[in-house]
Design a protein around this nucleic acid. Structure first.
Lengths: 114, 114
DNA sequence: AATGTATTTTACCAATTAGATAATTAACTT
DNA sequence: AAGTTAATTATCTAATTGGTAAAATACATT
């Protein structure tokens, strides 16, 4: 098993259940039962998935009476994005284009609201 | 084991050896032996890692005599980046700033070479 | 044809993971 | 105190992973 943070993050993300949990948490805090609700899976199984996400630093949990509210922590996603950035030129067609900055500026001007 | 493309990609990336292989391939094609060289690992082990990357669509291989030159295929990285984009607001401090587009424009002007 | 080089396949092993069920802990409600 | 709800821990099984060693395949050269 890998222990470096990036590997731990990638492997935590390599499961659709866990990604769905993160999606749910991106809408706000949730309890374990709330997170479990959409899945045909026992609560302990969900608890395990949460522990994986927690170990990866993608989720933190508070205590509120008998509830353990879960919260999204996006720090590791930043690291993943930073790693990905090295490869952007391979998949982002616009990345190498000469007129890139022109289109960027135009995009910002049309979508910006300053 | 998960079979959806995104999970397969994430799980292929969840290993430092495989990420190092991708890094090597980002500099150009390489044979299995060339890829194996930096690692204290037998050739079959490397071959297995390559198969994981291949299954994820991150690597393709040609045939040149008895060599199987490997090449980086970044398609899946694009999918990963697209998934990540949903979470950008959680980790990119600048994402929600009002002056975002101004700094972007400045960056493009200083680093661009059109 | 024989040999050497590149790579893969097979057989095997140890460690990990994902899930289930059952039991347990913790906190609230009555 | 008793019962209910939230969540975890313990234990088991099946499947997967990452590695090795040895054999097999594919091609090039002599």
């Amino acid at each position: 098993m890998q222990t470096d943070p990036l590997s731990v993050a990638f492997s935590a993300l390599a499961d659709p259940t866990r990604r769905a949990m993160l999606a749910r948490l991106s809408a706000g805090e949730a309890t374990v039962n709330e997170l479990a609700e959409p899945f045909a899976m026992t609560l302990p199984a969900v608890s395990k998935h949460l522990k994986v996400l927690e170990r990866a630093g993608l989720v933190s949990r508070g205590r509120n009476a008998q509830f353990r509210p879960c919260r999204l922590e996006a720090g590791p996603l930043k690291d993943v994005a930073a790693w990905m950035e090295h490869y952007r030129r391979f998949w982002d067609d616009s990345f190498n284009r000469l007129d890139d900055y022109l289109r960027e500026i135009q995009h910002k001007e049309t979508s910006g609201d300053a």
